[in-house]
Amino acid sequence: MPINFSHVYYTYLPKSPFEYTALENINLGIKEGSFTAIIGHTGSGKSTLVQHINALLRPTSGEVTVGDFVISSSTKKIKGLVNLKKYAGLVFQFPEYQLFEETVLKDVAFGPKNFKENNKVAFDKAKKALLSVGIDENLFDKSPFELSGGQKRRVAIAGIIALEPKILVLDEPTAGLDPKGAKEMMNLFKQNNENGTTIIMITHDMNNVLTYCNQVVVMKKARVEKVCTPIELFKDDNILHNVGLEEPHIISFAKKLIKKGLNLNLNLIRDLNSLVDEIVKARKNK
């Protein structure tokens, strides 16, 4: 298992009036090559959880294992910490604020250069990453600050993809994007996932969870409430209600059809196409 949390606690500003426990006894394993969604309300500890994956935060107690790296409260200096950052790339929420170089290309090449790649390799990797996120070559020499919001987001994400991480952690990558841009973005991640990258994504969009992910981690009040597949989660009305989640449009539509007497298999429904297939099948069997 490339990522494993065992008994992880995290407290912000311990021993002060501002003390706040963001993670409580987290035990969690994430398999290699999975596409995992982390969902939960604001303040449930999602962002704190993912920042442990590349050791931006160290657990107050407990242990996090990422690939060959072990992060615990007692290790003062982690051996090869820099390599961990390359192994597990983290894209923050609204990553466009991290842009700073003169040109788009230089900004994306900044990451690989930090990991001691020579100029040529860094620029090659940057170009590849930029093209993969759908940034046209004629934008390469523009200042990142001239781009539109959506383009900035793509460039910022390319900045992490250019590191070629084995694990890609995304904090609400589609927040604030237009629906078309968001869909393209999700397809990009899916493609990366099919090429072997483990993807962990914080999201509020249940439709994306259903369509793209194969594992869901539900967080509630600093704890992991449930780990399951998306369809198991959306079938279970109790937990949906308990955590206060809204089911994806397709699932609520399918559930209504089932109530009206159509015999659909919820397990097979992932997106619009599979829903249509199921409906056709059910109608034929009637």
Binding site: V82, Q98, N114, L163
Partner: peptide
């Protein structure tokens, strides 16, 4: 807060 955020984002890109 902003400084903290940017530092974390850049250190994810390998800045030490």
């Amino acid at each position: 807060e902003e400084t903290d955020r940017i530092m974390k984002a850049q250190s994810s890109r390998g800045v030490d």
